[in-house]
Amino acid sequence: MIPHARSRLLPAPHGFLGREGGVSGGIYAGLNVGLGSADDLGAVRENRVRAVAGVAPGAALVTLHQVHSADVVTVTGPIPDDVRPPADALVTDRPGLLLGVLTADCAPVLFADEAAGVVGAAHAGWGGALKGVTDATLTAMEALGADRGRIAAAVGPCIARASYEVGEEFVRRFAEDDAENERFFADGVRPGRWQFDLEAYVVHRLASAGVGRVDALGLDTYADERRYFSFRRATHRGEPDYGRQISLIGLP
């Protein structure tokens, strides 16, 4: 069994996976599923097989070429890895498909409307979150018959406020979008620096969009090296690349 976190709110088969249980080595040690990484491709493909087997055996995995956008793909069938569309969220109403988003500090968000039989997954880095990737996911789910009043959402492992130091220009982007966004920033240890709460911001966007049930797992990818890959941690160490973990959801 591949270790993974789950949300009490999501009835559909799902999981927020980390780095445990894979076959990659070196800086990618564990369950690196990033096709865009410089890891051995055979190891990455085996890790992806293991990830699917750990959540929904026999399902067809669908992932994206993630570009930090607010673009959403409505999935009606399997998509080969070599033609992954550039986007940052997926939705479907088709059983047998397993939607996956890759992260390494960004926030993975999984969605489900059990009554409508519609699920979604979004990759919400700060850029995509600010652009409205979660709002766009809800709209795409509604086009398949979902009702955002029934949708449950869960925000998985991502970089936490204590680990996410940012500068003045970063803060300004959010303040220009909405002055009240300043509440997601706390004073940093160093002068002229702030700590950004990505998880809280994503939860806010979901609640403001009308999602009544939101679960935040509160898991810090940067701080927990044993369980999670982290782009920022790898950058701080001067490592040449980093692994990616995957979050998955599908219909039974």
Rank of each mutant, 00 (worst) to 15 (best):
A43T: 11
A121E: 03
A179R: 15
I159V: 11
A112S: 14
R148F: 00
T92R: 01
Y201Q: 03
P57L: 01
T103Q: 12
F111R: 09
L9N: 05
R226Q: 12
A223E: 15
A143K: 14
I27L: 15
A116K: 14
R226Y: 06
L97C: 08
S7C: 02
T74P: 00
D93S: 11
E225H: 12
G54W: 05
I2Q: 11
D135L: 14
G156M: 07
R172G: 01
A209T: 05
I159D: 10
L41T: 13
Q245F: 07
A200T: 03
L41A: 05
A121R: 14
V133N: 04
A140F: 06
D135M: 14
V166T: 09
V67M: 13
A154T: 00
I151T: 07
G156V: 11
A234F: 13
S208N: 03
N181T: 04
V75F: 06
H4D: 01
V118H: 14
T235N: 09
A129D: 03
A186Y: 02
H65L: 11
R94I: 12
A12K: 09
T137E: 13
R48C: 10
F174R: 08
E165W: 02
L138F: 04
H65E: 13
P3Q: 11
F16T: 01
F170T: 12
R205Y: 04
A59S: 14
D215S: 03
A53C: 07
L35Y: 05
G210W: 09
V166K: 06
F16Q: 02
E168D: 13
G145E: 00
A12I: 08
G218C: 13
V109M: 00
A60D: 06
T63E: 15
D81H: 10
V62R: 10
Y228N: 09
G22D: 01
A51T: 04
G188Q: 12
P80C: 10
A51E: 08
F231T: 11
P108H: 01
I151V: 15
E182T: 12
P86D: 03
Q66I: 10
R94F: 04
E168Q: 13
G167F: 02
D40Y: 02
T134W: 06
T63L: 10
V155H: 01
G36Y: 09
D81N: 04
G21Q: 08
L97I: 05
R161M: 09
Y242R: 07
V189C: 04
R161I: 07
I151S: 02
V49G: 06
G36L: 01
G132M: 08
G210I: 03
D39Q: 15
I27G: 07
G212P: 01
P3F: 11
V101W: 11
P240C: 10
A153L: 06
V109P: 00
K131R: 15
A56V: 05
A29W: 05
S7W: 02
F229K: 04
R173D: 13
A122I: 00
G238N: 09
L10G: 02
V189M: 07
A124V: 07
A162S: 15
T63K: 03
G26R: 12
F229C: 01
R244F: 03
G132C: 11
R205T: 04
D197S: 12
G149R: 15
V23D: 10
E114W: 13
E169H: 15
F229I: 08
A146M: 04
A70C: 10
R172S: 14
P240H: 11
V214I: 11
K131S: 10
P157C: 02
